[in-house]
């Protein structure tokens, strides 16, 4: 990644973290009446990938997609308003946290069915090929999606047709509380790529520079018409599967495992790197935090003061005009 983008990537990661922490803090007031799936701890993946995307490139996310929406440049006010299920929300209160959308920046939606977004992103990539443009699609999904048929069917088709799509697996090792090793033989996800005829890599998903390097290569490969890539990013969500709980300890994830991953915080690591290079000063750090704080304040104020949909809108949008 070019040095000139370092601060932008840092800011994106910080924005994701602070937005989600604020959501976490507000959730107890029961005004956000939608299931939330936080990606605190996984910020480097979305930030490291999306830094290389253009506004007109597409992404498809999952039930855990706040980070990708923010990294791709989705409107924060409309996102928070959607979490508050307001009329001003990005999906007009029809979608909630699991269904964020912003077509102006190529976010065509996210699916709460595990693996459900993988064919859709393969389909937008097919459209790019048939239309002869160089728009790239990135599909984000978790390790659970590699259990699904859609993962395998889509990779096969994308390789067959050399489609401009990058499959980014955020492997956080857990599908709810079920560990990857209780569902798969282990360490296999990136290796599937070879069988389907595309490059596959496993990278440290908490190292934003490494994520970014592989993503940049994969995206350029797509733009050159050379076909898809699978990137498996090893990372960890600090929060439990859903809501604001931690799911750590007795019957859940081991405390030692959790502590290890928290010690590898992607934002802390990158900040230390930037400081060691003299790129991030204490003053710049503070000014970024201040700017983000105001942006978040604005978004929550906007959301909380926005109207809710009225019951007579219930049947709107079942069909497109």
């Amino acid at each position: 990644m070019d040095k000139s983008k370092w601060i932008e990537v840092y800011r994106t990661m910080k924005l994701i973290r602070l937005v989600e922490q604020r959501i976490n803090d507000e959730y107890k007031y029961d005004e956000i009446k939608t299931p939330i799936h936080l990606s605190i701890g996984q910020e480097a993946v979305a930030a490291g990938v999306c830094i290389h995307l253009r506004k007109d490139d597409y992404i498809f996310g999952t039930h855990r997609s706040h980070s990708q929406y923010i990294a791709k440049g989705g409107d924060i006010k409309k996102m928070i308003a959607e979490l508050y299920l307001r009329k001003t929300g990005c999906a007009r209160g029809r979608g909630g946290s699991m269904h964020l959308v912003d077509p102006d920046v190529g976010i065509l939606g996210s699916s709460a069915i595990v693996g459900g977004n993988i064919p859709l992103g393969t389909g937008t990539a097919l459209a790019s090929k048939l239309l002869g443009n160089d728009r790239v699609t990135v599909v984000f999904f978790g390790d659970g999606a590699a259990d699904e048929g859609t993962f395998h069917e889509s990779l096969n088709f994308a390789a067959l047709k050399k489609l401009p799509v990058v499959y980014v697996c955020e492997n956080n090792f857990y599908a709810i509380n079920s560990h990857q090793l209780s569902r798969q033989v282990g360490d296999n996800i990136h290796k599937w790529a070879q069988g389907y005829g595309m490059p596959g890599y496993q990278v440290d998903g908490n190292d934003v520079l490494e994520v970014s390097d592989y993503a940049e290569k994969a995206i350029s490969r797509c733009r050159r018409g050379e076909g898809p890539t699978l990137i498996e990013c090893l990372t960890y969500r600090w929060k439990g599967h859903i809501g604001t709980v931690d799911d750590v300890g007795e019957g859940y994830r081991p405390k030692e495992e959790y502590d290890y991953w928290v010690s590898r915080c992607p934002i802390k690591r990158f900040a230390e790197f930037l400081k060691s290079r003299g790129v991030l000063t204490a003053e710049l750090e503070k000014s970024i935090d201040r700017e983000i704080y105001e942006l978040i304040e604005d978004a929550f104020r906007f959301a909380q003061s926005s109207p809710k949909p009225s019951p007579d809108e219930l049947l709107d949008f079942v069909y497109a005009e």
Binding site: L108, G116, L120, G123, T124, L126, G149, F157
Partner: peptide, 12 residues
């Protein structure tokens, strides 16, 4: 997946 791929192409 072919159905989803068609749907994705339609979205684009």
């Amino acid at each position: 997946s072919m159905t989803g791929i068609a749907a994705g192409a339609a979205m684009a």
